[in-house]
């Protein structure tokens, strides 16, 4: 029993079963809504590899990453400031809380009004929405530095900058990463939504257009691609996180 439980193949069982069931159950399907997996894969290959690769996949990913990185950098910088300067934090607390409460997608019409439907509008929107989780987690993180470390950095007369870079930010990093992971999810959603609401290219655009024009194979292939992409991005993030926070995980495991 135990050896079965520990087998590394166990977690693979369900995905294989799902795919196999899907494949055989849908084989030769005549349903308009549920084409056979084989047809979906053919559409996938035809659409994404590599007909729309440069024209749609790459712009989607570039916009997403650009907005995301801007948000992370800005969120960490502003978060450090608000987290360590109390009067600033008090001053902007209501504005920040309200801005964060707005459902991000509700801003899409405004972004379209102000920036049109170009790349800039999308990047600004992604950046705006991803900003808040990083910001709030950074504020929280840099404020809760171990008091012992605060004593050390004061008694050894570390400068403000040294404290920020060597003590406060590293110590807040686990929490900042938690915020960044939430933001990555936001970035992905916003990326797709902006493409679905007003766009000339992108994976979301192609997928929704396929639905509207009843090319159902393509729609399915788009959903498949988005699913894979979302999971891959998240997996990549977790990998980077575990590498960067090796000290965090290992020091926790040791005690």
């Amino acid at each position: 029993m135990n050896t079965v439980l520990r087998s590394p193949f166990l977690p693979l069982l369900v995905p294989i079963a799902i795919i196999a069931t899907w494949w055989f159950a849908s084989a030769g399907s005549t349903s308009v809504f549920f084409p056979s997996l084989q047809d979906i894969l053919i559409a996938f290959q035809e659409t994404w590899l590599f007909a729309h690769f440069w024209s749609d996949i790459v712009p989607s990913v570039v916009r997403l990453i650009a907005g995301y990185i801007i948000a992370c950098l800005a969120g960490i910088a502003v978060g450090l400031l608000l987290g360590r300067v109390r009067s600033l934090d008090a001053a902007f607390q209501p504005s920040v809380q309200f801005a964060r409460a707005i459902p991000a997608v509700a801003l899409i019409p405004v972004a379209i009004l102000l920036f049109g439907i170009g790349d800039v509008a999308k990047i600004v929107l992604i950046a705006f929405c991803c900003f808040f989780p990083v910001l709030l987690n950074t504020i929280d993180g840099v404020r809760n530095v171990e008091s012992g470390l605060e004593d050390v950095s004061r008694s050894f007369r570390l400068t403000r900058w040294q404290r920020a870079v060597s003590v406060q930010l590293p110590s807040a990093m686990p929490q900042i990463f938690a915020g960044m992971q939430t933001s990555l999810g936001f970035a992905f959603i916003l990326g797709i939504v902006t493409e679905m609401t007003g766009s000339a290219n992108g994976i979301g655009f192609i997928t929704l257009e396929a639905q509207q024009s009843f090319t159902i194979d393509t729609m399915w292939s788009g959903m498949l691609l988005l699913g894979i992409l979302g999971s891959l991005l998240n997996a990549l993030f977790v990998l980077i996180e575990h590498r960067s926070l090796r000290w965090h995980y290992q020091s926790k495991a040791g005690h």
Partner: peptide
């Protein structure tokens, strides 16, 4: 805190930086 003074604190796990 004077430049000519150094301190060792009680709890080593809270006075060393685990990321360095």
């Amino acid at each position: 805190p004077p430049l000519r003074m150094a301190a060792v604190f009680q709890d080593y796990s809270r006075s060393l930086m685990p990321w360095y």
